[in-house]
């Protein structure tokens, strides 16, 4: 008969217990844990990817380098590290829409986007986006015309896919920083478009 897991102490207490067991043995320090948390809360996140997008929109030579070798081009801006060994940039436009998933776990380009949001890790997204992408995108607020070709990228190896969204109309006068402020995490995974300021 299938064993059902027994009731365990709650996760916050088990986390405290595991940390205590490892710090007792001198294997980890609270400072190292704090440092890692701080890095992903404050230093690494979608603002990194947004800088890449804004630069690609305003500098055609950078964009050419980015499309040819994503890892090197994002490295020019200082973005590298775990879950960014090989970055592949895919461009969205009016006729072709790309969206990224990891059906097997939660692979995500950490150096550019930080840790994945809840929806990306959710069974509903992981299961359905490969099977009925147009319906899932509509559910998430992105209605695509029927003539837009949809490609879903399942990141099942160590390549990390990063979406270069389409630059919205009405943003000609904006500089890189202003453009970067418009670019959302969702647009860089391919579940949203970037919109001009209202």
């Amino acid at each position: 008969m299938t064993a059902i897991p027994q009731k365990r102490p709650p996760a916050p207490i088990r986390t405290e217990a595991l940390e205590a067991l490892l710090t007792d043995r001198g294997l980890v320090t609270a400072e190292a844990i704090d440092g890692l948390i701080n890095r992903f809360v404050n230093d690494v996140g979608p603002m990194n990817g947004a800088k890449v997008v804004a630069k690609a929109w305003t500098d055609p030579e950078y964009k050419a380098r980015l499309m040819a070798d994503g890892t090197a081009a994002v490295g020019e801006l200082g973005f590298a590290g775990p879950q960014g060994e090989h970055i592949v940039v895919v461009e969205n436009d009016e006729k072709a829409h790309n969206v990224v998933v990891c059906t097997l776990c939660s692979c995500y380009p950490w150096p550019l986007l930080g840790l994945p949001p809840n929806w990306y890790k959710d069974p509903a997204y992981r299961s359905r986006i490969v099977r009925e992408p147009r319906a899932v995108l509509a559910e998430m607020g992105l209605e695509l015309d029927q003539d837009v070709a949809i490609t879903v990228w399942d990141s099942s190896a160590e390549n990390r896919y990063f979406i270069l969204p389409q630059r919205p109309d009405g943003t000609d006068g904006l500089g890189e920083d202003e453009l970067a402020a418009l670019v959302t995490r969702e647009a860089m995974v391919g579940v949203a478009k970037v919109h001009a300021p209202a």
């Binding site: 809840n118 509903a124 992981r126 099977r131 995490r185």
Partner: peptide
């Protein structure tokens, strides 16, 4: 999970924090 069914709708919260709780 790819292609499995019955999981419901995808809820998108653009303000999703990196960690909802300290633990």
């Amino acid at each position: 999970m790819g292609g499995t069914q019955g999981w419901g709708t995808v809820e998108l919260d653009p303000d999703d924090p990196v960690f909802a709780n300290d633990w």
